[in-house]
């Protein structure tokens, strides 16, 4: 079952593929990426092109290389072979200003207050939108005077979402954004994500192994297994062929 097809050619005539300012190049190009860790291979020749404005689901079981791929794009992991380009630029200081990365771990200092986390991000990233941050903060039920060290796991996960989504970055990378968020509020969080997502100008990659939660939001999917792309395609086309993505996920990784 190999449904690979180039992601770059998007024949849909719904207008969003047409860049308004002639920036026709994809927001992300990954070419033949290889990353080896001592004793293991995390990525084994991954190539991927993401057209502007697309929501891509990076699906796979734990340890399939999802995080490593996202970190390579964010500039945290340095591939042994291959190349990553964001808006045509090789990963580096300039691309870090254009990528909003939501890590799986908690990167903030325990002594920081929520307000300080926001100030930090606003200071370092010029695409920060204060109004949006305020809106998200309310939506996520967080207060500015709360200390990071005193937040629950779920609250910290929500804080990371606030910080990532309040940036008007061309490329958002969310690494397991739902991990740590209790089942009851997941639907709500996804609604918030859809509500804040800008489409068109913004592209998004979500890595998750909880496919059902984001099923309807994904436009393209890449199934990763042991560092290789096992299957990739347009979400709707795959669904029409196989039923839900969740079912396909279970089928692929059975």
């Amino acid at each position: 079952m190999d449904e690979r097809r180039p992601l770059a050619t998007e024949p849909e005539a719904d207008g969003r593929g047409a860049p308004a300012d002639g920036e026709g190049r994809p927001v992300l190009e990954v070419r033949d990426l290889v990353k080896r860790y001592p004793g293991a291979e995390a990525l084994n020749g991954v190539s991927l092109t993401l057209p502007r404005g697309t929501v891509l689901g990076l699906l796979g079981p734990n340890g399939s290389g999802k995080s490593t791929l996202l970190k390579s794009i964010a500039g945290l992991v340095h591939p042994d072979e291959g190349e990553v380009r964001v808006e045509g630029l090789p990963v580096g200081t300039a691309t870090k200003a254009r990528v909003a990365y939501l890590p799986e771990v908690d990167p903030y200092y325990r002594w920081m207050r929520v307000a300080q986390v926001l100030e930090w991000t606003a200071t370092f990233y010029d695409d920060w939108e204060p109004d949006r941050a305020e809106e998200l903060l309310q939506f996520m039920n967080l207060r500015r005077d709360q200390k990071v060290g005193g937040l629950s796991k779920g609250q910290r996960a929500r804080l990371r979402l606030v910080v990532t989504l309040a940036r008007n970055a061309p490329l958002l990378l969310l690494d397991e954004p739902l991990s740590g968020i209790d089942l009851a509020s997941r639907a709500r969080i996804i609604r918030g994500l859809i509500g804040q997502f800008r489409g068109g100008e913004q592209s998004l990659i979500i890595s998750t192994h909880e496919v059902a939660e984001v099923e309807g939001f994904l436009e393209r999917v890449v199934f990763l297994e042991r560092g290789r792309i096992r299957l990739e395609g347009e979400a709707e086309a795959l669904r029409v062929k196989h039923g839900s993505l969740q079912a396909l996920f279970e089928e692929v990784f059975a």
Partner: peptide, 19 residues
């Protein structure tokens, strides 16, 4: 957008449906 948020689907999907 409201429909997309409510139904938890991609705004582009809704756009396509509306078209």
């Amino acid at each position: 957008r409201d429909l997309a948020v409510q139904a938890r689907v991609n705004p582009n999907t809704v756009q396509r449906a509306y078209r």
